[in-house]
Design a protein around this nucleic acid. Structure first.
Ligand code: FES
Ligand code: FES
Lengths: 150, 150
DNA sequence: AAATACAGGACTAATTCAGTCCTATTTACC
DNA sequence: GGTAAATAGGACTGAATTAGTCCTGTATTT
């Protein structure tokens, strides 16, 4: 199945939780709210911070908050933060958008168009969209565990 | 990194090889042409056949040929054939397009839009496009090994 | 100064993927 | 009709990736 990492799915849950409450929340607190184990939450939050999606504050009463509005955070951003670059096939390119040896690489040529198309698709979907789609179904996200219980 | 399986990349190489020569080719022969190990080629070809992307002929002088024109085979088709359904997050849905429990599933709601967008993106890219992109770079695909050899 | 919370990274366990191989069935050709 | 060529299906193993945990260090508040 063609899918994103589990951690990426978690990441969206965490970001949505942070977006809902506007205040700074500790990694620990977010874990309790979402039901995701706190070491894992900590790991993901570090990635999100390094990618500049959330702002962090150290020390007592520190924690995380969104760096920008949910409308400005795209799925492409989240995936890149957690999994690294969006490139449908393995490539030496880790940096920007274009690989500098692609002219001699027989693999990338054919996947270029696909990469671009997928990146564009994922850039169209924002965090705000995901929140909207969720509430459309009338399900507050912390019900996850309740419904899972048989 | 957000990427497709290695086998899916192989599959595109195989399909391109089949598209170039118009005749029926055996799995063995395709393996020799592309440099991909023949048991692996056999495995992939079976998937492609089950998905209806290639036609097979058993028996002596049998082999595979494209079921339809390269313009009509999309990347979404290839990925689905090799990896199964395109669903960015795990879901009970294995069948068509819609999961029948999605109304009570807090995960899928938020990913629905993304799934649709990615599927659409991958449907836009055809095998014919990939061939064109490759030849644009002037690299016949079997050079892969040559360039890889340091 | 002490407590709280993030930063970075090493490490292990679990899962998934890639690759191989075996047996059965179908078809061409002599 | 018999033999060889080729696909169909599926079981199995080893490799690679991912998920999850934990430890040590640094910054900040009280
Ligand atoms: S390695 Fe970058 S284009 Fe192939
Ligand atoms: S399991 Fe199908 S929508 Fe969640």
């Amino acid at each position: 199945m063609f899918k994103v990492n589990k951690l990426t799915d978690y990441a969206t849950v965490l970001l949505i939780e942070i977006a809902r409450r506007k205040v700074v929340q500790s990694s620990q607190h977010i874990a309790e709210q979402t039901g995701i184990p706190s070491p894992t939450v900590a790991k993901i939050m570090k990635s999100l911070n390094r990618a500049g999606l959330v702002a962090s504050r150290r020390g007592a009463s520190g924690g995380y908050s969104l760096e920008r509005a949910a409308e400005l955070i795209t799925l492409a951003d989240v995936i890149q933060a957690v999994e690294g670059p969006i490139a449908l096939t393995a490539c030496a390119d880790t940096s920007d958008e274009h690989c500098n040896i692609e002219s001699i690489c027989p693999v990338q040529g054919k996947w270029n168009r696909a990469n671009t198309a997928v990146r564009a698709a994922l850039t169209q979907v924002t965090l705000a969209d995901m929140v909207a789609d969720m509430t459309m179904f009338g399900v507050p996200q912390h019900v996850a565990q309740t419904t899972a219980a048989e």
